[in-house]
Design a protein around this nucleic acid. Structure first.
Lengths: 147, 147
DNA sequence: TTATTTCCTATTAAGTCGGTAGAGATTGTC
DNA sequence: GACAATCTCTACCGACTTAATAGGAAATAA
Protein backbone atom coordinates (compact mmCIF):
# COMPACT_ATOMS: atom_id res chain seq x y z
CA UNK A 1 0.00 0.00 0.00
CA UNK A 2 1.17 3.50 -0.76
CA UNK A 3 0.92 5.89 2.16
CA UNK A 4 -1.83 8.40 2.75
CA UNK A 5 0.86 11.04 2.52
CA UNK A 6 1.76 9.98 -1.02
CA UNK A 7 -1.88 10.07 -2.06
CA UNK A 8 -2.21 13.58 -0.66
CA UNK A 9 0.96 14.61 -2.46
CA UNK A 10 -0.30 13.32 -5.79
CA UNK A 11 -3.67 14.99 -5.35
CA UNK A 12 -2.02 18.28 -4.43
CA UNK A 13 0.36 18.09 -7.37
CA UNK A 14 -2.51 17.33 -9.72
CA UNK A 15 -4.32 20.39 -8.43
CA UNK A 16 -1.21 22.49 -9.05
CA UNK A 17 -0.73 20.92 -12.48
CA UNK A 18 -4.23 21.88 -13.48
CA UNK A 19 -3.73 25.41 -12.20
CA UNK A 20 -0.82 25.75 -14.65
CA UNK A 21 2.94 25.63 -14.37
CA UNK A 22 3.55 29.24 -13.35
CA UNK A 23 0.31 29.58 -11.42
CA UNK A 24 0.45 29.37 -7.64
CA UNK A 25 -2.10 28.05 -5.20
CA UNK A 26 -2.24 28.48 -1.46
CA UNK A 27 -2.09 25.63 1.00
CA UNK A 28 -5.58 26.34 2.24
CA UNK A 29 -7.09 26.31 -1.22
CA UNK A 30 -5.54 22.96 -2.01
CA UNK A 31 -6.43 21.55 1.40
CA UNK A 32 -10.03 22.66 1.10
CA UNK A 33 -10.40 21.60 -2.51
CA UNK A 34 -8.89 18.17 -1.99
CA UNK A 35 -10.10 17.63 1.56
CA UNK A 36 -6.63 17.15 2.98
CA UNK A 37 -5.81 18.05 6.61
CA UNK A 38 -4.29 21.49 6.34
CA UNK A 39 -1.32 21.20 8.68
CA UNK A 40 -0.43 17.83 7.28
CA UNK A 41 -0.48 19.24 3.76
CA UNK A 42 1.84 22.03 4.90
CA UNK A 43 4.49 19.47 5.70
CA UNK A 44 4.02 17.64 2.45
CA UNK A 45 4.26 20.73 0.26
CA UNK A 46 7.27 21.99 2.17
CA UNK A 47 8.92 18.67 1.62
CA UNK A 48 8.17 18.72 -2.09
CA UNK A 49 9.63 22.20 -2.22
CA UNK A 50 12.84 21.14 -0.50
CA UNK A 51 13.14 18.34 -2.96
CA UNK A 52 12.94 20.66 -5.90
CA UNK A 53 9.46 20.01 -7.22
CA UNK A 54 7.78 23.20 -6.09
CA UNK A 55 8.54 26.87 -5.63
CA UNK A 56 6.86 29.00 -3.00
CA UNK A 57 6.22 32.53 -1.85
CA UNK A 58 5.44 33.65 1.66
CA UNK A 59 3.24 36.42 2.94
CA UNK A 60 0.08 37.78 1.47
CA UNK A 61 -0.71 36.34 -1.97
CA UNK A 62 1.84 33.65 -1.29
CA UNK A 63 1.50 30.05 -2.36
CA UNK A 64 3.09 27.11 -4.12
CA UNK A 65 3.66 26.45 -7.80
CA UNK A 66 5.09 23.65 -9.91
CA UNK A 67 8.69 24.14 -11.02
CA UNK A 68 8.39 21.70 -13.88
CA UNK A 69 5.78 20.97 -16.51
CA UNK A 70 3.33 18.22 -15.49
CA UNK A 71 4.52 16.00 -18.31
CA UNK A 72 8.00 15.99 -16.78
CA UNK A 73 6.93 14.79 -13.34
CA UNK A 74 6.31 11.06 -13.05
CA UNK A 75 4.28 9.21 -10.48
CA UNK A 76 7.33 7.11 -9.68
CA UNK A 77 9.34 10.18 -8.84
CA UNK A 78 6.71 11.54 -6.48
CA UNK A 79 6.33 8.19 -4.78
CA UNK A 80 10.08 7.90 -4.21
CA UNK A 81 10.22 11.42 -2.78
CA UNK A 82 7.43 10.81 -0.33
CA UNK A 83 7.47 7.10 0.51
CA UNK A 84 11.09 6.25 -0.22
CA UNK A 85 12.33 3.37 -2.37
CA UNK A 86 9.84 1.53 -4.55
CA UNK A 87 11.96 -1.62 -4.69
CA UNK A 88 10.68 -4.71 -2.88
CA UNK A 89 14.22 -5.59 -1.79
CA UNK A 90 17.08 -3.29 -0.79
CA UNK A 91 19.35 -4.99 -3.31
CA UNK A 92 17.01 -3.89 -6.09
CA UNK A 93 16.72 -0.27 -5.10
CA UNK A 94 18.36 2.41 -7.19
CA UNK A 95 17.88 5.07 -4.53
CA UNK A 96 18.71 3.00 -1.45
CA UNK A 97 20.77 0.07 -2.62
CA UNK A 98 22.02 -2.30 0.04
CA UNK A 99 23.57 -5.67 -0.49
CA UNK A 100 21.32 -8.50 0.66
CA UNK A 101 22.62 -9.85 3.91
CA UNK A 102 20.57 -12.98 3.76
CA UNK A 103 21.62 -13.93 0.32
CA UNK A 104 25.11 -15.30 0.53
CA UNK A 105 23.66 -18.80 0.59
CA UNK A 106 22.88 -19.88 -2.95
CA UNK A 107 19.14 -19.56 -2.55
CA UNK A 108 19.36 -15.84 -1.99
CA UNK A 109 19.29 -14.87 -5.60
CA UNK A 110 16.35 -17.07 -6.43
CA UNK A 111 14.32 -14.63 -4.40
CA UNK A 112 16.00 -11.66 -5.98
CA UNK A 113 15.22 -12.80 -9.50
CA UNK A 114 11.47 -12.90 -9.21
CA UNK A 115 11.28 -9.62 -7.38
CA UNK A 116 13.58 -7.97 -9.87
CA UNK A 117 11.17 -8.82 -12.62
CA UNK A 118 8.10 -7.74 -10.66
CA UNK A 119 9.83 -4.51 -9.76
CA UNK A 120 10.75 -3.84 -13.36
CA UNK A 121 7.15 -4.36 -14.47
CA UNK A 122 5.88 -2.12 -11.70
CA UNK A 123 8.25 0.79 -12.22
CA UNK A 124 7.88 0.59 -15.98
CA UNK A 125 4.36 1.87 -15.42
CA UNK A 126 5.02 4.30 -12.58
CA UNK A 127 8.05 5.90 -14.17
CA UNK A 128 6.32 6.29 -17.51
CA UNK A 129 3.16 7.93 -16.22
CA UNK A 130 3.30 11.67 -15.63
CA UNK A 131 1.02 14.11 -13.87
CA UNK A 132 -0.04 15.25 -17.33
CA UNK A 133 -1.00 11.68 -18.24
CA UNK A 134 -3.04 11.39 -15.07
CA UNK A 135 -4.83 14.64 -15.72
CA UNK A 136 -5.39 13.84 -19.35
CA UNK A 137 -7.49 10.79 -18.69
CA UNK A 138 -5.50 8.07 -20.46
CA UNK A 139 -3.77 5.79 -17.99
CA UNK A 140 -0.40 6.70 -19.49
CA UNK A 141 2.23 7.25 -21.29
CA UNK A 142 5.26 9.01 -22.46
CA UNK A 143 6.87 5.83 -23.63
CA UNK A 144 4.75 2.75 -23.73
CA UNK A 145 2.20 1.92 -26.34
CA UNK A 146 -1.50 1.53 -25.64
CA UNK A 147 -2.61 0.02 -22.32
CA UNK B 1 9.77 -3.39 0.53
CA UNK B 2 8.57 -6.85 1.42
CA UNK B 3 8.97 -7.78 5.07
CA UNK B 4 11.78 -9.81 6.56
CA UNK B 5 9.12 -12.27 7.60
CA UNK B 6 8.05 -12.81 4.00
CA UNK B 7 11.64 -13.37 2.93
CA UNK B 8 12.06 -15.94 5.68
CA UNK B 9 8.83 -17.62 4.65
CA UNK B 10 9.92 -17.89 1.03
CA UNK B 11 13.32 -19.24 1.98
CA UNK B 12 11.76 -21.80 4.30
CA UNK B 13 9.25 -22.87 1.68
CA UNK B 14 12.00 -23.22 -0.90
CA UNK B 15 13.90 -25.45 1.48
CA UNK B 16 10.80 -27.58 1.97
CA UNK B 17 10.12 -27.62 -1.76
CA UNK B 18 13.58 -28.95 -2.41
CA UNK B 19 13.17 -31.58 0.27
CA UNK B 20 10.17 -32.92 -1.67
CA UNK B 21 6.42 -32.65 -1.29
CA UNK B 22 5.91 -35.47 1.21
CA UNK B 23 9.24 -34.97 2.95
CA UNK B 24 9.28 -33.17 6.27
CA UNK B 25 11.93 -30.94 7.79
CA UNK B 26 12.26 -29.73 11.33
CA UNK B 27 12.20 -26.09 12.33
CA UNK B 28 15.74 -26.25 13.60
CA UNK B 29 17.09 -27.72 10.40
CA UNK B 30 15.48 -25.02 8.32
CA UNK B 31 16.50 -22.30 10.75
CA UNK B 32 20.10 -23.46 10.78
CA UNK B 33 20.29 -24.05 7.06
CA UNK B 34 18.76 -20.71 6.14
CA UNK B 35 20.11 -18.72 9.06
CA UNK B 36 16.69 -17.65 10.27
CA UNK B 37 16.07 -16.92 13.97
CA UNK B 38 14.59 -20.13 15.27
CA UNK B 39 11.74 -18.85 17.42
CA UNK B 40 10.73 -16.41 14.73
CA UNK B 41 10.64 -19.18 12.18
CA UNK B 42 8.40 -21.19 14.50
CA UNK B 43 5.75 -18.49 14.27
CA UNK B 44 6.06 -18.23 10.53
CA UNK B 45 5.74 -21.95 9.87
CA UNK B 46 2.87 -22.26 12.28
CA UNK B 47 1.14 -19.46 10.45
CA UNK B 48 1.70 -21.11 7.09
CA UNK B 49 0.28 -24.29 8.53
CA UNK B 50 -2.85 -22.57 9.79
CA UNK B 51 -3.31 -21.09 6.36
CA UNK B 52 -3.21 -24.45 4.70
CA UNK B 53 0.19 -24.46 3.05
CA UNK B 54 1.96 -26.88 5.37
CA UNK B 55 1.28 -29.99 7.42
CA UNK B 56 3.11 -30.79 10.62
CA UNK B 57 3.85 -33.46 13.14
CA UNK B 58 4.85 -32.96 16.74
CA UNK B 59 7.16 -34.91 18.94
CA UNK B 60 10.24 -36.84 18.04
CA UNK B 61 10.80 -37.04 14.28
CA UNK B 62 8.23 -34.29 13.88
CA UNK B 63 8.50 -31.49 11.37
CA UNK B 64 6.81 -29.60 8.60
CA UNK B 65 6.06 -30.59 5.03
CA UNK B 66 4.47 -28.93 1.99
CA UNK B 67 0.84 -29.81 1.38
CA UNK B 68 0.97 -28.82 -2.27
CA UNK B 69 3.45 -29.34 -5.07
CA UNK B 70 5.90 -26.44 -5.46
CA UNK B 71 4.56 -25.63 -8.91
CA UNK B 72 1.16 -24.93 -7.36
CA UNK B 73 2.38 -22.38 -4.83
CA UNK B 74 2.96 -18.89 -6.19
CA UNK B 75 5.09 -16.13 -4.76
CA UNK B 76 2.06 -13.87 -4.81
CA UNK B 77 0.12 -16.28 -2.63
CA UNK B 78 2.86 -16.50 -0.04
CA UNK B 79 3.28 -12.75 0.05
CA UNK B 80 -0.44 -12.22 0.59
CA UNK B 81 -0.49 -14.78 3.39
CA UNK B 82 2.40 -13.20 5.24
CA UNK B 83 2.37 -9.50 4.38
CA UNK B 84 -1.28 -9.01 3.53
CA UNK B 85 -2.65 -7.32 0.41
CA UNK B 86 -0.28 -6.61 -2.46
CA UNK B 87 -2.43 -3.82 -3.85
CA UNK B 88 -1.11 -0.26 -3.62
CA UNK B 89 -4.61 1.05 -2.87
CA UNK B 90 -7.41 -0.57 -0.85
CA UNK B 91 -9.79 -0.09 -3.75
CA UNK B 92 -7.56 -2.31 -5.90
CA UNK B 93 -7.19 -5.17 -3.46
CA UNK B 94 -8.89 -8.46 -4.11
CA UNK B 95 -8.27 -9.72 -0.59
CA UNK B 96 -9.00 -6.54 1.33
CA UNK B 97 -11.13 -4.38 -0.90
CA UNK B 98 -12.29 -1.07 0.54
CA UNK B 99 -13.87 1.77 -1.33
CA UNK B 100 -11.60 4.79 -1.62
CA UNK B 101 -12.78 7.43 0.79
CA UNK B 102 -10.75 10.17 -0.78
CA UNK B 103 -11.93 9.54 -4.27
CA UNK B 104 -15.45 10.89 -4.53
CA UNK B 105 -14.03 14.03 -6.11
CA UNK B 106 -13.42 13.40 -9.78
CA UNK B 107 -9.65 13.29 -9.39
CA UNK B 108 -9.85 10.17 -7.26
CA UNK B 109 -9.90 7.79 -10.11
CA UNK B 110 -7.03 9.45 -11.90
CA UNK B 111 -4.90 8.08 -9.11
CA UNK B 112 -6.61 4.74 -9.18
CA UNK B 113 -6.00 4.25 -12.89
CA UNK B 114 -2.25 4.44 -12.83
CA UNK B 115 -1.94 2.26 -9.76
CA UNK B 116 -4.34 -0.27 -11.20
CA UNK B 117 -2.06 -0.72 -14.16
CA UNK B 118 1.11 -0.88 -12.07
CA UNK B 119 -0.56 -3.39 -9.78
CA UNK B 120 -1.62 -5.54 -12.69
CA UNK B 121 1.92 -5.58 -14.07
CA UNK B 122 3.33 -6.42 -10.66
CA UNK B 123 0.98 -9.24 -9.78
CA UNK B 124 1.18 -10.68 -13.28
CA UNK B 125 4.72 -11.63 -12.36
CA UNK B 126 4.21 -12.59 -8.73
CA UNK B 127 1.12 -14.69 -9.36
CA UNK B 128 2.71 -16.49 -12.28
CA UNK B 129 5.94 -17.45 -10.55
CA UNK B 130 5.87 -20.58 -8.40
CA UNK B 131 8.24 -22.06 -5.88
CA UNK B 132 9.17 -24.57 -8.55
CA UNK B 133 10.06 -21.75 -10.94
CA UNK B 134 12.23 -20.16 -8.31
CA UNK B 135 14.01 -23.39 -7.59
CA UNK B 136 14.39 -24.21 -11.23
CA UNK B 137 16.49 -21.22 -12.04
CA UNK B 138 14.38 -19.49 -14.69
CA UNK B 139 12.73 -16.37 -13.37
CA UNK B 140 9.32 -17.80 -14.26
CA UNK B 141 6.62 -19.07 -15.47
CA UNK B 142 3.59 -21.14 -15.65
CA UNK B 143 1.86 -18.74 -17.95
CA UNK B 144 3.90 -15.99 -19.46
CA UNK B 145 6.36 -16.35 -22.27
CA UNK B 146 10.07 -15.73 -21.94
CA UNK B 147 11.27 -12.98 -19.62
C1' DT C 1 8.58 -41.77 31.87
C1' DT C 2 11.50 -38.96 29.46
C1' DA C 3 13.34 -36.45 25.61
C1' DT C 4 11.96 -34.24 21.57
C1' DT C 5 9.32 -31.38 18.91
C1' DT C 6 5.55 -28.51 17.57
C1' DC C 7 1.92 -25.19 19.50
C1' DC C 8 0.44 -21.02 21.52
C1' DT C 9 0.38 -16.61 23.95
C1' DA C 10 2.57 -12.78 25.86
C1' DT C 11 6.06 -9.34 25.82
C1' DT C 12 9.41 -6.08 24.08
C1' DA C 13 12.17 -2.32 21.81
C1' DA C 14 12.38 0.37 18.03
C1' DG C 15 10.38 2.42 14.28
C1' DT C 16 6.52 4.27 11.15
C1' DC C 17 2.13 6.60 10.12
C1' DG C 18 -1.05 10.13 10.24
C1' DG C 19 -1.77 14.00 12.24
C1' DT C 20 -1.70 18.23 15.63
C1' DA C 21 0.51 22.40 17.85
C1' DG C 22 2.67 26.51 18.01
C1' DA C 23 6.07 29.77 17.33
C1' DG C 24 9.03 32.10 13.75
C1' DA C 25 10.05 34.39 9.25
C1' DT C 26 8.55 36.85 5.19
C1' DT C 27 5.59 39.61 2.37
C1' DG C 28 1.84 42.91 1.04
C1' DT C 29 -1.29 46.65 2.49
C1' DC C 30 -2.98 50.52 5.10
C1' DG D 1 5.26 51.12 11.25
C1' DA D 2 1.56 48.17 12.37
C1' DC D 3 -0.86 44.38 11.03
C1' DA D 4 -2.63 40.51 8.77
C1' DA D 5 -1.77 36.78 5.78
C1' DT D 6 1.05 33.12 4.48
C1' DC D 7 4.73 29.93 4.32
C1' DT D 8 8.65 27.65 7.51
C1' DC D 9 10.28 24.88 10.92
C1' DT D 10 10.53 21.84 14.96
C1' DA D 11 8.50 19.25 18.25
C1' DC D 12 5.19 16.23 19.78
C1' DC D 13 1.46 12.57 20.01
C1' DG D 14 -1.15 8.04 20.05
C1' DA D 15 -1.82 4.05 17.57
C1' DC D 16 0.15 0.62 15.06
C1' DT D 17 3.74 -2.48 12.92
C1' DT D 18 8.02 -5.03 12.77
C1' DA D 19 11.24 -8.33 14.18
C1' DA D 20 12.10 -10.55 17.27
C1' DT D 21 12.43 -13.17 22.35
C1' DA D 22 10.45 -15.98 26.27
C1' DG D 23 8.41 -19.65 28.26
C1' DG D 24 5.37 -23.01 29.04
C1' DA D 25 1.69 -26.46 27.14
C1' DA D 26 0.62 -30.34 24.36
C1' DA D 27 1.73 -34.27 21.54
C1' DT D 28 4.63 -38.04 20.01
C1' DA D 29 8.33 -41.69 19.94
C1' DA D 30 11.29 -44.67 22.35
Amino acid sequence: MISQKAKYALRALLALAEAGVGQSMQISDIADGQRIPRKFLEQILLDLKHRGLLSSRRGKNGGYALLRAPDLITVGEVLRLIDGPLAPLPCLSRMAYRRCEDCDGEDDCRIRRVFAEAHRANTAVLDATTLADMSGGSAHHRILGAG
